[in-house]
Design a protein around this nucleic acid. Sequence first.
DNA 1: ATTATCTATAGATCTATAGATAATGC
DNA 2: ATTATCTATAGATCTATAGATAATGC
Lengths: 205, 205
Amino acid sequence: MKDSEENMEQRILECAEKLFLDKGYNLASTTEIAKEAGCTQALVHYYFRTKENLFQKIFDRKLSLFLAPFAESDNSTLPFAELLESKVRIFFDSVAQNQKMPFMLLSEIMSSTTQRAYIRDKITEICGVMSLEFNRRVEAEVASGNIRPVTGVDIMLDIFSLVMSFFMLLPVLEDLDVVTDENREAFIKERRTHIIETLIHCIKK
Amino acid sequence: MKDSEENMEQRILECAEKLFLDKGYNLASTTEIAKEAGCTQALVHYYFRTKENLFQKIFDRKLSLFLAPFAESDNSTLPFAELLESKVRIFFDSVAQNQKMPFMLLSEIMSSTTQRAYIRDKITEICGVMSLEFNRRVEAEVASGNIRPVTGVDIMLDIFSLVMSFFMLLPVLEDLDVVTDENREAFIKERRTHIIETLIHCIKK
DNA sequence: ATTATCTATAGATCTATAGATAATGC
DNA sequence: ATTATCTATAGATCTATAGATAATGC
């Protein structure tokens, strides 16, 4: 009852999210989550019964928020190069605001087959329609000879790879002093531009 | 003394490597490693004292083997596009033979600052010279107007991102039935070609 | 003698639950 | 009465070590 502005269940969710993102599922213990939230460990289980439940609730919400902007952006009337640029920009900015999500997502992908099935369903649910449309669009562009023969899957993989890896590798770039506190913001912006240009070049004949 | 062909210390190393790659540092217990190797858990500690030691020894060796082909390939006499193709091909094939390394490497990068410092030093040690030469070459090509203005760092990031992410995302592609047992080999080969073409397109003016 | 291997166990977690007590809403 | 919170504890790991015993190399 210290913080009158929000209840303990909410606090637990917030602290758990932070710890799961920082340390991953296994290293974030319900004991530590409770400590961070300012309650006993038993209370965490009172509200969410199992650690697995708690995690899944957080991960589910996070994954939706993470993918939504990318999935929802409908730019079907744009020329293809601009559509591509818009897609990358939106996804890049979504990741920039959730810089720990790529690693969390990958960890879950590696963790178990069931978790992967869950993620697959979630991706299909959120991105399925957009993905189908995108694939069709790419096919149409290829058929009409506007771009070189690539598949929608290839381009999607390119986008995911370039954007997610960049943020996962940022800490290394900082260690190597390629990225510093001074140039950080500019570097990120330039990288976004580079990725957009790379992808646009990549589809050119 | 069951397996006469190799000693137990070696067996432990091999089983530990497999388990660390499969489950990650935290979920691979010395208990399980011992069980897999066919000895008691105490013996694992007899040979390597701590789990951390054991892991570091394996990771160190694995990281060297993983980066070496990429670092050592000297193609400085080739035209730049061919040099790029060669670099990607070599790194792609190295990852293809160590498909779990990208995730292990990322996990360690995320795990702690000390581990990151260690990785930074290792990368510098193995790739430092090559990296410097590559950067100079890129600058020269840009200066002479052969390619569009990009940095060596950008291209390195592109290569690492596209190649490592592809193998980390493979399980998802399999879940989505984009990759199956039948097309797997061909798909991987085509992806390698696509990445090479993308990077070559990307440097064109 | 030395090295390899085992048994047994201490000590540190961690998750989950049972059961007691305090706070809150009627 | 119901809901929120705490104390205490069971039971499952896991790492690391001490101390005993078996195997090996002179």
